[in-house]
Amino acid sequence: MKAVTWRGVNEIGVEDVPEPTILNDHDVIVEVGLSATCGSDLHLMGGYIPAMRGGDVLGHEFMGRVGEVGPGVTKHQVGDRVVVVSFVGCGKCWYCREGLWSLCDNGNPNPGLTDALWGQGIGGCYGKFPLGAVMNKALTLRGAQQHGHRYIPEILDRMSRDEVKTEHLATHVMALDDGPEGYRMFKEKEDGCVRAVFRPGG
């Protein structure tokens, strides 16, 4: 199948890669209908996130139809139309049960890496942080990657009532083959590009 891949710093390509297969009982395979560029992909593109390798398939915002389900899956059936949350949450651990899906204990097969980066060493650090102002003005700082599973039902509900719209943000819809060009336009904010969205189906 075709996929947009990271090849090196600021180098995006389209290549043929093997099709995914069920590896765990709770996997499904999604036939991607639409996939979007995200601002955080630019951090990957620019080489700011360590541990990227040439050939890594990009993209964490996508939706499509379920093409295959693993033997442990009960919630979805082949043919279901689904939006996929970017974070892999197991749904069983303490964090997932608390609604803190992006902190899932079990969704990351390489926990040692992030542990070293964010739990122990001084990784992802910010210099000249105005802590005095934070302290004296009694500010509360809340940080989080999105706990998408928690919010999607409500957002879908609001969309059905027209309270939330996102279509206008998909300014550039293009074929997956144009992935590198889409990422370039997105990064350079060319031609009013807010989001490049790819159609793997052409």
Binding site: L100, T114, V134, N136, L139
Partner: peptide
């Protein structure tokens, strides 16, 4: 705290959903 600090672990704070609360 009164001023600024270096090496504030912003990555841990953001990626691990920490809440920082403070005040005199």
């Amino acid at each position: 705290y009164g001023g600024t600090v270096d090496k504030f672990p912003a990555g841990a704070w953001m990626n691990r959903s920490l809440t920082l609360r403070t005040g005199q």
